[in-house]
Simulated assay, not measured.
Amino acid sequence: MWNLSRIRAIALDLDDTLWPVWPTIERAEGVLQHWLSEHAPATAAWLSDPQRRRAVREQVHAEFPHLAHDLTFLRRESIRRALAAAGDATELAEPAFEVFFAARQQVALYPDALPALQRLSRRFPVVSLSNGNADLRRIGLDAHFVGTVSAREAGCKKPDPRIFHRAAAVAGVPPEAVVHVGDDFELDVLGALGAGMQAVWVARQPAAPMPAAHAAAVPVCADLTELCKTLGIPLD
């Protein structure tokens, strides 16, 4: 059952919880493509074929299933292989990835995200918990978090209980004192519950109904303003 009195810390997902991720990734890929057109034009032409882009990523993912938690490695290796396939210098993979990575941090927050973060962080220690590779310092949100936990650093990704337990340790509380907040029902909600935490499902888009088995234990919020209300935080 949902128990507000147990909560002493918040673990917070990033992508699609604080900002929409796919527009961010698409913009970053466009910036990368422009950079390649200047520094590795053969690769830019090679990657202009969507089927090639998809195929090289799928090949890398298939060859490195043990690194599925490391999106930075997978992206960099995909770039390196595209450079090699097009006949360009593979040494460009690192600067090319940095161009992509910098653009990936140019997120557009949901309107409710920053005001909610300010309220949440005044009331609870907040730890980011993400399968992605967003950099809160580059984004400019790190002041609202006591720590960050990423799949790459943890060596595993949600819904593995170990990454949730790491977030609890960073917050300095046991898992049962943490509520994890995220948009993905399987990765965030079921993952948190499986790790002994409570969970809040942020369903910004119309979603499938909450399974009856979890209805009494998991609040559903349309945005982070509603999350603050659910956690009893005044909207000043």
Rank of each mutant, 00 (worst) to 15 (best):
A45H: 13
R53E: 15
A103G: 08
T90V: 15
H39G: 00
I7D: 01
L18G: 09
R53C: 12
T225L: 09
A84Q: 15
A215M: 08
D135I: 05
H180W: 06
A151F: 05
A216R: 10
P125Q: 06
Q205C: 00
L83E: 08
H66P: 03
W2G: 03
P174F: 07
I163A: 09
P206V: 01
D49C: 12
A68S: 13
V127P: 03
L231D: 05
A207R: 14
A212K: 06
S48V: 03
G30K: 12
P65C: 06
P219N: 07
P50D: 05
L120A: 14
R204F: 03
A11C: 12
N133M: 04
A113C: 05
A207Y: 03
Q106F: 03
H34L: 11
D15P: 09
T230L: 06
M197D: 02
P234S: 12
H34Q: 13
W35D: 14
V181R: 00
N131M: 01
G191K: 13
W201S: 01
E38V: 04
G140P: 07
P209N: 01
V21M: 12
G232Y: 09
A102R: 14
C221H: 04
A103E: 07
L114H: 11
A177N: 13
G232L: 08
D13F: 13
D183C: 00
A134G: 10
L231T: 05
L117Y: 02
A143L: 11
A177C: 07
S150Y: 02
V181E: 02
L187M: 06
E153V: 12
A203T: 03
M210I: 15
